[in-house]
Design a protein around this nucleic acid. Structure first.
Lengths: 204, 204
DNA sequence: GTAGTCATGTAAGAGGTTACATGATTAG
DNA sequence: CTAATCATGTAACCTCTTACATGACTAC
């Protein structure tokens, strides 16, 4: 149940509404975790019921209201405990790899299209991730600035370092995917040039 | 719905029972996809109902029976179509990274323990994956040999190449994880040596 | 006989996706 | 006045996890 901890983690930066939280889930934090609003709003209610966060009902305009959530003491403890928990790596479920392992049921054209899509998708991801790391270094990340405001200056270095470290992990991963896709395209080019036959979708 | 295609992919190698399929899911194929038996048996029944596989009921001993599944023509088509389908990369959900991004709520000791666990877990994976690649190259993989027996020799090269390629993708990924964990341990050593304070789980 | 393997299920519940749904506020 | 944004829900459905359950066969 990590959605809960992802939400807690964001809320430790500053109190905010579910709606604002969702924007961070589509932006910065999405690199590690994301969730649709249909999952976030009910979870926030449950977390409130569990005492991990508290809501302040504020007015927006004349009639409308909004709930601004803050992390409570028990919420911080919960987050802290979770950081130290032992967790087994979840079983692999990788569609791209499963496909690639059975490209012989398709054609060189189809395989090339899949790998090209994989490549461009991860190249785009890489660009986003690298600009995030740059933004962390330049202290241009709003959420990070809020964190800094709440904590003594001596702690700032470690806070930023861990964020950057996490993003560097994602960068390493997408770079590995990019290299893999390129290798695959090379492999296909070679097999095709040498006219190595594939099984294809032939009925039997 | 990729469980279905993972099962189809394995069954194309040779007809087998759900039980045997599960062993492959714990062995070779587990590097890309895995599922518990409680998910596999019902799915096989559904696939049979959909005409993608057919079951031959065979006797085991005097009283007991078993169902040996084979992929049908429509099953091969389904697998082939799926190879070419466009699929969006699923949203990231990475507990290790989410944790690492918030290590400041913990202690250097706890962070080190998490990263060490990450490191050793992926080192073990690496060993397994590398021995799998070796086994593919030496043609010591039973499932691959069955595939070869069913296909003309000219196709063997591409079949093996795609399997190896897929495993190399997993190897690249775990190597990236290993490097990341090491960088994290270095980072922690440096911060700790310089006595950079962390927030810790302090209640506020 | 008994432990290990072969073989196959059901079911409750957690977590996640997708679609349906509503309404207020604000900027142009 | 109208479109975009703010704000929050419900519900059906699918996938996956975990636990409960059963029984035959085989080697010792």
């Amino acid at each position: 149940m990590s959605l809960r901890h992802a939400l807690l983690a964001v809320l430790t930066a500053e109190p905010m509404t579910g709606y604002e939280l969702l924007k961070y889930f589509d932006g910065t934090v999405a690199a590690f975790w994301s969730a649709p609003h249909s999952q976030v709003y009910p979870e926030l209610r449950r977390m409130e019921a569990a005492g991990l966060i508290s809501a302040e009902v504020a007015a927006r305009g004349e009639r409308a209201q909004k709930r601004i959530y803050s992390v409570t003491g028990p919420g911080i403890s919960e987050l802290s405990d979770w950081i130290g928990e032992h967790s087994t790596v979840p079983p692999e479920r990788d569609v791209a790899r499963l496909r690639a392992a059975h490209f012989e049921f398709s054609s060189y054209d189809v395989a090339r299209r899949q790998l090209t899509a994989h490549l461009t998708e991860h190249q785009e991801r890489l660009t986003r991730l690298e600009s995030m790391v740059q933004a962390i270094q330049d202290l241009r990340v709003p959420l990070l600035r809020r964190r800094f405001e709440k904590r003594p200056e001596a702690e700032h270095e470690a806070i930023a370092a861990f964020k950057e470290f996490a993003f560097r992990g994602q960068i390493a991963r997408v770079k590995a995917e990019i290299a893999w896709a390129k290798q695959g395209l090379d492999l296909i080019a070679d097999l095709e040039r040498r006219s190595v036959p594939l099984r294809g979708p032939a009925l039997d």
